[in-house]
């Protein structure tokens, strides 16, 4: 049977040392929707996100079992060319980490690495993705300036543009608004809503209101387990599990 979701996670267990971070996760991430991984701090949301593009490789003493399938490829399989998988997934992290180069360089970096060197091509792409993230008007006169000179909100949009420039199918965002002021964080949320027609978006957050604003699909996690998952409307209006009800009421976070 064809997997119905864009990404299919099956029987995923993850240990760091002796501690089990993810417990038997089974979940699906639907295509061209915003999936929110919701849950209180320390429940394993970020680890789950990082498993999707195997940034967990950077951790020491890690043990993973289970499968994460995208298309017909198992991402967790060690034979999989991980750089190719990662290029299909743009990452937006908690705080923006612009690469130590110019605004232009940040966006051109991923393209250059995958072998594009023609200046005209790079120029077009840089302009295009800066326009997509509504940065172009703000930065078009200072593309050669260091990216670190931008405001944090602009940096976060630059990081998104940088991720989009390598033409991914999926955007992974780890609490993308947690370091931003309300205006910038709204800008990011609106961007995600615009972008979902072209991309599959996965957003990790512990902010319930944010989840309600943007989610099409929710995966609710607690202490390393998936408690409940489903379409956003159903999840928020009519939660099935006691834990979910308590969380939505704000009993804990």
């Amino acid at each position: 049977m064809e997997p119905s979701g864009k990404i299919k996670i099956q029987n995923l267990n993850l240990f760091i040392g002796k501690q089990q971070i993810l417990k038997n996760i089974n979940a699906e991430i639907p295509e061209n929707k915003i999936t929110v991984i919701l849950g209180p701090s320390g429940c394993g949301k970020t680890t789950l996100l990082k498993t999707l593009n195997r940034l967990t490789d950077l951790y020491e003493n890690i043990k993973i079992s289970g499968t994460v399938e995208m298309g017909n490829e198992d991402i967790l399989h060690t034979k999989t060319d991980i750089t190719k998988i990662r290029r299909k997934m743009g990452l937006v992290s908690q705080r923006p980490y612009p690469l130590p180069m110019s605004i232009y360089g940040n966006i051109a970096y991923g393209l250059k690495i995958s072998g594009h060197t023609k200046k005209q091509f790079l120029d077009e792409k840089v302009e295009y993705y800066l326009k997509v993230t509504h940065l172009w008007e703000e930065v078009k006169d200072r593309l050669k300036q260091p990216a670190s000179a931008l405001s944090v909100g602009q940096q976060q949009r630059l990081c998104l543009a940088r991720g989009l420039a390598v033409d991914p199918e999926i955007i992974l965002a780890d609490e993308p608004a947690s370091a931003l002021d309300p205006v910038s964080s709204m800008a990011i949320e609106e961007l995600f809503t615009e972008l979902k027609s072209w991309y599959t978006i996965v957003v990790v957050t512990h902010i319930l209101r944010q989840a309600k604003r943007i989610a099409d699909h929710v995966i609710f996690m607690y202490l390393g387990e998936v408690i409940e998952q489903g379409p956003a409307g159903e999840f928020f209006e009519n939660p099935k599990m006691e834990k979910t009800k308590a969380y939505i009421k704000g009993a804990f976070n």
Partner: peptide
């Protein structure tokens, strides 16, 4: 996170270190 950013753009570990 800076390494993570570079890796998720499809860079290899060595490219990440070098650039």
């Amino acid at each position: 996170e800076l390494s993570e950013a570079s890796l998720s753009l499809g860079a290899t570990k060595w490219e990440t270190i070098k650039y």
